[in-house]
Amino acid sequence: MTAPARRAADYAEAFVRGPAHLGRGAGGVGIYTTEDADTARQYAGNGGVVVRAVPLAGARLVGVEELLARRAQELATLTEREQRSLRVLTEDPGRLAAALGYDAVRYPDGTVLVVNRTALAVEEP
């Protein structure tokens, strides 16, 4: 295996057995995944590794629209001061989902932001 391929294999192994490393992207803090195999292969690139994973039975997934609607409903019950103090938590969909007990957030484009890696069944790399 070449060095970049070895690093990709190491990342895949770390994803399955190592400490969770959450990314920070436009959708919030979490592990960015996709439901589309072609998109996954594009992100992996040459020498990359695609790790197959599916949510376990009972995993709690929420659509981003539903999550944001719930946020708005919950914030509407708070004072302006309380809302300001919770802004950091509630503006990040990943953090908000985790705080509300969800395992992942599903986006309309097929992206799934996983905030609880233990809610996944992962294929051996």
Score class of each variant (00 low, 15 high):
Gly18Glu: 04
Tyr32Asp: 06
Pro108Tyr: 08
Pro19Asn: 10
Leu120His: 04
Arg87Tyr: 06
Asp103Tyr: 05
Ala20Trp: 12
Glu82Asp: 13
Ala3Ile: 09
Ala5Pro: 00
Leu113Phe: 12
Asp38Tyr: 03
Gln73His: 05
Ala5Tyr: 03
Asp109Arg: 14
Leu96His: 08
Arg81Pro: 00
Gly94Val: 15
Val112Ser: 01
Glu80Asp: 09
Thr79Lys: 01
Ser85Lys: 14
Arg70Met: 11
Tyr32Ile: 03
Val112Ala: 08
Leu78Val: 01
Val51Arg: 05
Ala98Glu: 10
Pro55Asp: 04
Tyr107His: 11
Tyr43Pro: 00
Glu13Asp: 13
Ala53Arg: 01
Arg117Cys: 06
Phe15Ala: 00
Arg106Pro: 01
Val49Phe: 00
Ala5Trp: 02
Ile31Trp: 05
Arg60Met: 01
Ala26Tyr: 15
Leu120Arg: 02
Gln83Tyr: 05
Thr118Trp: 05
Gln42Leu: 15
Ser85Asp: 14
Leu56Trp: 04
Arg117Asn: 08
Arg17Val: 00
Ala76Tyr: 03
Ala44Arg: 11
Arg117Pro: 13
Met1His: 14
Glu66Asp: 15
Gly101Tyr: 09
Ala76Ser: 13
Ala69Trp: 07
Arg84Val: 13
Arg95Trp: 09
Ser85Glu: 12
Glu65Phe: 10
Ala3Arg: 10
Thr111Glu: 09
Ile31Val: 08
Asp103Thr: 15
Leu89Tyr: 12
Gln42Ser: 10
Gly23Ser: 10
Leu67Tyr: 03
Glu124Pro: 14
Gly27Gln: 14
Thr118Val: 11
Leu113Pro: 12
Val16Asp: 00
Ala9Phe: 01
Gly23Lys: 04
Asn46Val: 15
Arg106Tyr: 01
Gly48Asn: 15
Gly25Arg: 13
Gly63Lys: 11
Val16His: 02
Pro93Met: 06
Ala9Asn: 00
Arg52Asp: 10
Tyr32Thr: 05
Tyr43Met: 11
Arg60Asp: 03
Thr118Phe: 06
Tyr43Gly: 04
Val88Gln: 15
Ala76Asn: 10
Ala119Lys: 09
Arg24Lys: 13
Pro108Asn: 07
Gly63Cys: 12
Arg87Ala: 13
Ala121Tyr: 07
Val16Met: 06
Leu56Val: 08
Leu61His: 04
Arg60Phe: 02
Thr34Glu: 06
Glu124Met: 12
Gly63Pro: 12
His21Ala: 14
Glu91Tyr: 05
Arg106Ile: 06
Gly30Asn: 10
Ala99Gly: 07
Gln73Cys: 01
Gly58Gln: 15
Glu74Pro: 01
Glu65Trp: 06
Ile31Gly: 04
Ala121Arg: 11
Val50Ser: 02
Pro125Trp: 08
Asp103Arg: 11
Leu22Ala: 08
Val50Phe: 00
Ala69Lys: 15
Val16Gly: 01
Ala9Met: 03
Ala5Met: 05
Gln73Pro: 01
Gly25Ala: 08
Thr34Asp: 02
Leu75Tyr: 02
Ala121Asn: 12
Arg24Ser: 14
Glu91Ser: 15
Asp109Glu: 14
Val51Pro: 04
Gly23Trp: 05
Ala20Asp: 07
Leu89Asp: 06
Leu113Thr: 10
Glu65Tyr: 09
Gly18Met: 05
Arg17Gln: 02
Val49Gly: 00
Val64Ala: 13
Ala121Phe: 12
Gly28Arg: 14
Arg117Ala: 09
Thr118Tyr: 10
Arg24Glu: 07
